[in-house]
Design a protein around this nucleic acid. Structure first.
Lengths: 223, 223
DNA sequence: TAGATTGTTAATCGATTAACAATC
DNA sequence: TAGATTGTTAATCGATTAACAATC
């Protein structure tokens, strides 16, 4: 009765991969066959077959030997496992360039695959407060706390400057938000129960930069 | 003479962490002491001390027992190791919302910590072609190939819709680009020598969503 | 049936952490 | 000196892959 984590604890990697499987599965919805095998997904994504089986097992969806998994059943299982069925509402703070981009993504449903939906934005800049951006109203930051409590919002997205990030995060915690997606380049100091994900966008670029250096060096050596 | 990778092969994780150390070190530049210990970084970032020592060893920068590492020397070593000293020029394709946000970041120097600088943008939309966005000119996509070859650009950033991403990526490869940072939600099919990093922005959100589910469930059980 | 596919147990691999001698 | 910190070797941990029996 005490410990009851249905299966195993999902690893971060597994969650990311499940998202990819889902993406592929959704794109295959117009195919004739209603079955998709792990082998098929493996070929499509270049991920090891066994790994895919492992990941799929997490969702509790069982496949049939020789045929594979029922596509729609699997879609449902992954969506359920990733909590995409019952959407969580989110607040975004910082209606600058990146905030705008995220609101556009939100409007185009790109985040629907994550189970999170932005329902309001906040800023302190009078030029944007009161406006609607991609269908989402921008309120003054001072209203966030009350609105969050009133609407039971649990997720916050920070797209402010690094200087304001800590302050905004503190406000969010006060407002009862427990999951924070931080795009500002700063190490936030938060209570341990808060779920913090740093977007760290640029780390991808840094990796490319490093690899490029290796590759260019190798080429010049070989020549 | 054949194999000559100065130290070990850096792991992806190590590269990400080195970026964080660098960030902290830069923010400490105004401090009195010119020495920073791994223990200090450990406290600051919550990363295991030994791990930090491992990572720092990659850069070849040696510390002094009892005092730590010379701050500026370490900054230099990390920047050098991550190839931040000799900047790589990059092209961005897709001057939409996200493209705009990245160009703003570029202008504000947020990518300078990655050693990559966007020097031109491309699109096919007549409304933006010819304009300057955050100081960067937007050319018609048809000009990319020649410009890339002429300017020796090796890095491409894709911020188009998922539908156009493959086509743009192919164009980039033809143009001699070997490192691609892809923000479009699509599995690109590319020659194996191409360095591909998928930004997968939303995976952070997905993780928050999953964790939130666990936490809310636990809370309600406990009650 | 035969063969493809599943799901699980065991083996491998790699990254993180612990332990400790070296050193200033 | 004594104590803090380094850097490395060994131990642990976790995730990925291999091997294989079960099954439709």
């Amino acid at each position: 009765m005490v410990e009851n984590n249905d299966k195993n604890i999902p690893t971060l990697g597994a969650i990311r991969r499940l998202g990819k499987y889902l993406q592929i599965l959704l794109s295959l919805r117009n195919e004739e066959s209603e079955f998709v095998s792990a082998s098929r997904l493996s070929r499509e994504l270049g991920i090891h077959e066994t790994q895919i089986r492992r990941d799929l097992a997490l969702t509790g969806c069982e496949g049939r030997p020789k045929v594979g998994h029922n596509r729609d059943e699997l879609i449902w299982a992954i969506q359920n496992y990733l909590n995409l069925n019952n959407t969580n509402d989110a607040f975004l703070v910082g209606a600058g360039h990146l905030g705008n981009a995220l609101l556009a993504y939100n409007a185009h449903g790109r985040f629907s695959s994550t189970g999170i939906k932005i329902i309001a934005a906040f800023d302190i800049n009078p030029a944007v407060v009161g406006q609607k951006i991609h269908g989402i109203e921008v309120f003054h930051l001072s209203k966030m706390r009350n609105l969050a409590k009133r609407m039971g919002v649990h997720v916050g997205i920070i797209t402010t400057s690094p200087e304001s990030a800590q302050e905004v995060a503190d406000l969010m915690v006060e407002a009862g938000i427990i999951g924070i997606w931080n795009f500002a380049l700063s190490n936030l100091n938060l209570p341990s129960h808060i779920i913090l994900e740093n977007a760290e966008m640029e780390s991808g670029l840094a990796i490319i930069s490093r690899r490029l250096k290796e590759q260019l060096r190798n080429n010049s050596q070989r020549r």
